[in-house]
């Protein structure tokens, strides 16, 4: 293979090195026994993980991150799933316009969105930093829940609901027994995607953190600005492992569709 397509193999190799190289270096640095961000690491140890655990702001920020991710994911689902249902199954005038409106948070630069929320909500309405963070992340995640759940609904036969009605099921039973189970894999994927997106977000969180309230990526940014030791690398590895674990779970859940035979 390599001999037959030398150029393609070379480009692929370069791409992999560029993508995974920095990550590999970061992981190496995180396990270093030395005290600089040097590569290769000077011996192996877990001391920087221990240091990270002792650094109070990181622990607090991790709690904030998980809390914000959980609450805003739940809110984005609570708003996004009914919206998707209405868009996919209802008869809404100007459907496409409404649908596109749900995608604007992806198009509008997050810094602009963050600034607007900062000025209007945090300062204007005197809402706490944590509350504003949750609101901001919910807005950010909404397009993902609407689109991912919408995709699973769009693939399903709209006649399914009619079949259920014809068999004697009222609207509520039809929703619980047919529509919801059909959407379930989409909802699961949307949940995981939204959770990761919230957990790793920087630009929006940066503008919406207040005194004593910061998400983990923002706290890491703060830390790097003042000190330069492998603690940040250790925290990055933790965040990386968490994201990969969640992504792996997504893959398993996406494989769920096999259960449905589609």
């Amino acid at each position: 293979m390599i001999l037959r397509r030398p150029l393609l193999s070379l480009l692929t190799a370069i791409a992999f090195v560029l993508m995974l190289g920095p990550v590999a270096i970061l992981i190496g640095v995180a396990f270093t026994a030395g005290s600089t961000l040097a590569f290769p690491p000077e011996g192996l140890s877990l001391r920087w993980f221990a240091a990270a655990l002792e650094y109070r702001p990181f622990i607090d920020a991790f709690g904030t991150s998980v809390l914000v991710a959980l609450v805003s994911t739940a809110l984005a689902l609570a708003l996004g799933v009914p919206a998707t249902l209405a868009l996919q199954r209802g008869r809404i005038p100007g459907r496409r316009v409404v649908e596109n409106l749900f995608f604007t948070p992806i198009i509008v630069p997050e810094l602009v969105l963050g600034l607007a929320l900062f000025q209007q909500v945090m300062v204007g309405l005197q809402i706490t930093a944590l509350g504003t963070l949750v609101i901001g992340h919910t807005v950010l995640l909404l397009p993902y829940t609407v689109r991912v759940v919408g995709a699973s609904l769009a693939l399903a036969d709209p006649r399914l609901e009619e079949a259920a009605r014809g068999l004697g099921a009222g609207p509520v039973r039809t929703f619980l027994r047919v529509t919801l189970p059909v959407m379930a894999p989409g909802i699961a994927s949307a949940t995981i995607l939204a959770f990761i997106t919230s957990l790793n977000n920087v630009p929006l969180s940066l503008l919406l953190t207040g005194p004593g309230v910061a998400t983990l990526p923002v706290e890491m940014l703060n830390y790097v600005q003042s000190s330069f030791d492998p603690v940040v690398a250790a925290v990055s590895v933790v965040l990386l492992v968490l994201s990969v674990a969640v992504a792996f779970a997504t893959e398993r859940l996406a494989g769920f569709t096999k259960v449905f035979g589609r």
Binding site: D157, R159, A163
Partner: peptide, 9 residues
């Protein structure tokens, strides 16, 4: 229905 519309789950 033409599309069968069997409940996939």
């Amino acid at each position: 229905f033409q599309s069968y519309a069997l409940f996939p789950h």
